[in-house]
């Protein structure tokens, strides 16, 4: 009843190739430009509860009010919330082929200035001494020096700061 299906059936291969254009919108546009031009991460604030909105966005999910045009710099350094050694890389949806990875670890970063629970992000982690890795340690970004586009890929990877 299970498994073992003979491979005598015809399958027709096909490849989907599409090009989308993703509009960042005014809030993320500011984030992207600060990243591209000044290597800075920025966030905006909720005018009511004052919490930081990271990534920046139009409204506060807690108060459901329109975000203020009040900007703060956060990170780009931060705290390592989680790390994992990468096994098999996934497929890059831009090419349909295996993604080339710039580092051998993945991590979750709590950027300086953002409270825990109010926004963190995923990135790569370049690790020299895996035995010294621990959650809660400081991490700093390594930026691309040229041809930055305004996406998180302008940061090549993060590196742990050993004490």
């Amino acid at each position: 009843m299970n498994q073992k299906v003979p491979d005598q059936y015809i399958k027709i291969p096909h490849t989907v190739r599409l090009l989308y254009r993703y509009a960042a919108g005014p809030y993320m546009a500011r984030f992207c430009k600060e990243l591209r031009e000044n290597k800075r991460l920025v966030a905006n604030r909720c005018p009511r509860c004052r919490r930081i909105l990271f990534p920046p966005r139009i409204s506060c999910p807690d108060c459901m009010v329109r975000a203020a045009d009040e900007w703060v710099e956060v990170g780009p350094g931060g705290t390592l919330l989680f790390f994992a050694e990468l096994g098999r890389p996934g497929i890059d949806t831009r090419t349909g082929e295996v993604q080339e990875l710039p580092a051998s670890y993945a991590c979750l970063i709590q950027p300086d200035g953002v409270l825990i629970g109010q926004g963190c992000f995923s990135h790569w982690l370049k690790v020299e001494n895996p035995e010294k890795l621990r959650e809660g340690m400081r991490v700093e970004p390594v930026f691309k020096e040229e041809r930055r586009l305004g996406t998180l890929e302008d940061i090549l990877y993060y590196v742990p700061v050993e004490e």
Binding site: Y22, A24, M28, C32, P55, A84, L86, P89, G90, T93, Q99, L101, Y105, A106, C107, L108, F121, S122, H123, W124, T151, L152, E153
Partner: peptide, 13 residues
Amino acid sequence: DPLWRRRFRSGAG
């Protein structure tokens, strides 16, 4: 989101 997490799926999957 392509700006935020799509690139990091291999690790953040």
